[in-house]
């Protein structure tokens, strides 16, 4: 169904202290990964309102990545736990509106895990490529 030129639109909402720093570290180490993801920086994944993600899907995102610190490592003690809970619930909402819940992903990448960030990027793009364009994509247009 996807046309030849389709490129996935993926948005990553990532925390300042761990994942954003990890992504910067990947840059320093020149780890190469697919260029399909756009990042929005927040101070903590706890900031991520489920509405942001629903808005992204409504706008036609093919995938959303939320990435924060490892459990127990949150710069703000427990923001990532709260984010993980919300993402877990949100996944069931996505299923109910007919979206594959694999389109929403939460990962934990620390400031020292540049290589892991590269692997996450690879993996997210691969997953979304397999799933193809979001069914909401047409509605958004």
């Amino acid at each position: 169904m996807a046309d030849e030129n389709w490129k996935p639109k993926i948005i990553a909402i990532i925390c300042n202290w761990c994942s954003y720093a990890g992504a910067d570290l990947a840059g320093g180490a020149r780890i190469q990964y697919p260029p399909d993801i756009r990042a929005v920086r927040v101070m903590c994944t706890g900031r991520v309102d489920p509405l942001f993600i629903l808005k992204a899907f409504q706008d036609g995102a093919d995938g959303v990545l939320v990435s924060g610190c490892h459990f127990g490592d949150c710069h703000y003690l427990e923001g990532n736990y709260k984010a993980a809970k919300r993402m877990f619930l949100l996944k069931s909402v996505l299923k109910n509106i007919g979206l594959d819940d694999k389109r929403l992903r939460m990962t934990f990448v620390s400031a020292s895990e540049g290589a892991k960030w590269g692997m996450v990027m690879e993996d997210v793009v691969k997953t979304i490529n397999e799933l193809g364009p979001s069914p909401l994509n047409e509605l958004a247009r």
């Binding site: 639109k9 909402i13 900031r47 309102d49 992204a56 706008d59 036609g60």
Partner: peptide, 16 residues
């Protein structure tokens, strides 16, 4: 500095 309208504007700017 990380208000909801600001973040949603970023999401919209990318996708729309």
């Amino acid at each position: 500095h990380f208000a909801s309208p600001q973040i949603i504007a970023q999401i919209d700017a990318f996708l729309l």
